[in-house]
């Protein structure tokens, strides 16, 4: 039983890494750094609604670490971690009040928290409030991308219902 769960979590991590690598090859969407679809978040949102907090955190942390290694940009780690952890903490709280029919709502708010975390990190790293001019663009794009990945995760959950027994 425990081994099976380990295998499923490893599979999820691998799937999120694949999504991450696919997205790396997309052209830059906008002149504002940090704007992206966040396809790998589909897995995080799925995991939030299917596994315990600790298990989801493990999948996310491994994905962020290995993702930074694959992308070869270790300096982005602090932004990924601050954004990812705030997003995860928020979604883990929100899953208590948002039901499985409204996962996209949870995903949108998670994306917004992700941006808030990134901007806070950028504010301290860059030592300037200039990065705050990025905030509205990141938030607006985050809402759209969050809704998209949220719907994707919702489909995954309804399709996989009863097919994986962990």
């Amino acid at each position: 039983m425990k081994l099976k769960k380990l295998a499923v979590l490893a599979l999820l991590t691998a799937a999120s890494l694949i999504l991450f690598v696919i997205e790396l090859n997309f052209p830059t969407l906008a002149p504002v750094p940090g704007i992206k679809l966040g396809l790998a978040n589909i897995i995080t949102v799925y995991a939030v609604y299917s596994f315990t907090a600790g298990e989801t955190a493990m999948v996310l942390a491994v994905r962020i670490l290995l993702g930074a290694l694959i992308a070869g940009e270790p300096f982005t780690l602090i932004f990924s971690f601050s954004g990812g952890l705030l997003c995860l903490a928020g979604m883990l709280l929100l899953r208590k009040v948002i039901d499985k029919k409204h996962i996209w709502v949870c995903s949108v708010l998670g994306a917004v928290l992700h941006n808030v975390g990134q901007l806070t990190a950028a504010f301290f790293v860059m030592n300037t409030s200039a990065v705050l001019a990025y905030a509205p663009f990141l938030l607006a794009a985050g809402c759209l991308a969050g809704a998209l990945t949220g719907f994707a995760a919702q489909f995954v959950i309804s399709r996989l219902k009863g097919r994986i027994d962990i």
């Binding site: 949108v108 708010l109 917004v112 905030a135 509205p136 663009f137 938030l139 607006a140 809402c143």
Partner: peptide
């Protein structure tokens, strides 16, 4: 949040 961010943009 979305509406406010658009106005802020």
């Amino acid at each position: 949040v979305f509406a406010l961010s658009l106005i802020w943009c």
